[in-house]
């Protein structure tokens, strides 16, 4: 087969032959069985090439559809972090409540008039703080108790703890920090949880900034 004939077959099969050439070429095919066979084989090859190309395109589309959505995954992950951080910040910023852990504020073996008065003051300050109103009144009471050498260290420490909360309620973060640093409470003997201490530190930080 000549190169020219091969070129004509390919042009015909590819559909790029001019109409005039096409008519005369089809006449030629009719009278040449061998040429007809070559055209049919080339048409078959074209069909295979076409299907092969389509298969590659479809496979590529399917691969894209099936691939993990990295961008979306990242958004979900960042969204998750943001949501967790929001919850944490909300919890850290919520009003500080007094620890539920009970302690024997009396701490004194003998109950006298003075100790009874202190106990009453302590309870009064506690009620004010829990109510969240007039923290200044609680501060006045607790400043006397927190540094009173006549009462136990445990009693003093709890008074200081409550004083820190009262300062925070009164927007006195510096005083709250100063008092909090004096509590000096670590280890299993400390009645305050890590969460409560973290929350206090966070609120002091935001109160100062």
């Amino acid at each position: 087969m000549t190169d020219l004939l091969q070129e004509q077959i390919e042009d015909y099969v590819a559909g790029v032959m001019s109409e005039t050439d096409k008519v005369s070429f089809e006449e030629k095919i009719k009278s040449d069985a061998q040429l007809l066979q070559q055209v049919n084989e080339t048409q078959r090859l074209r069909e295979i090439l076409l299907r092969s190309r389509v298969r590659r395109q479809v496979d590529a589309a399917r691969a894209e559809i099936n691939q993990p959505r990295k961008g979306k995954g990242l958004i979900f992950m960042l969204g998750g972090f943001a949501a967790a951080a929001s919850v944490l910040l909300f919890m850290l910023s919520s009003p500080m409540m007094l620890t539920s852990q009970e302690f024997n504020y009396r701490g004194e073996t003998t109950i006298n008039q003075a100790s009874e008065a202190r106990a009453n003051d302590f309870e009064k300050a506690k009620a004010i703080i829990n109510k969240g109103e007039n923290p200044q009144d609680a501060i006045m009471i607790l400043e006397k108790l927190a540094y009173n050498p006549e009462i136990s260290s445990n009693y003093q420490r709890n008074s200081k703890w409550m004083l820190v909360i009262a300062y925070l309620q009164a927007d006195k973060a510096d005083k709250a920090e100063e008092t909090f640093n004096k509590i000096n409470c670590e280890g299993i003997e400390c009645p305050y949880s890590t969460w409560e201490k973290t929350k206090i530190k966070w609120q002091i930080f935001w109160g100062k900034n």
Partner: peptide, 19 residues
């Protein structure tokens, strides 16, 4: 056709499909 090699396939694609 897939095993025919990239260059071979590209030439035939351009000739017979794209014209």
């Amino acid at each position: 056709v897939s095993k025919a090699g990239k260059n071979c396939r590209q030439i035939l694609d351009m000739r017979l499909i794209d014209g």
